[in-house]
């Protein structure tokens, strides 16, 4: 229902060509605002993308490779493996 209504108004406007592009009059009318609108759009887009990027970054598993691990002997290692059930496979 809503889409149909939207579609009807969209087609009825005088400022669209039959194929849906803006007419020259619409382009001329919107020209004074085109740059500012584009900048605003770019700003909003970069904020959204930035938020996603930040979220993705913050949920990536931490890297512990720089944490020093104390040296373990072979028996100790075998015992721990047995304890955590890692060598059953």
């Amino acid at each position: 229902m809503l889409t149909r209504r939207f579609y009807a108004t969209y087609r009825d406007t005088k400022y669209r060509n039959p194929n849906g592009t803006m007419t020259m009059a619409a382009i001329r009318a919107r020209q004074p605002y085109a740059l500012r609108n584009a900048l605003l759009g770019l700003g909003m887009l970069s904020f959204a993308v930035g938020t996603y990027m930040w979220a993705y970054q913050s949920f990536t598993p931490d890297d512990f490779s720089d944490v020093p691990v104390p040296p373990l002997s072979e028996e100790e290692l075998a015992r721990l493996r047995k304890e955590y059930g890692l060598d059953k496979k």
Binding site: T13, K14, Y15, T23, M24, A25, A26, R28, A29, R30, Q31, P32
Partner: peptide, 18 residues
């Protein structure tokens, strides 16, 4: 009321081609 173009656009006049 910025200029004729925006006036016609916001008042929904016929789309003036040229």
């Amino acid at each position: 009321f910025l200029d004729w173009y925006t006036f016609f656009y916001t008042r929904n006049f016929y789309s003036m081609e040229n």
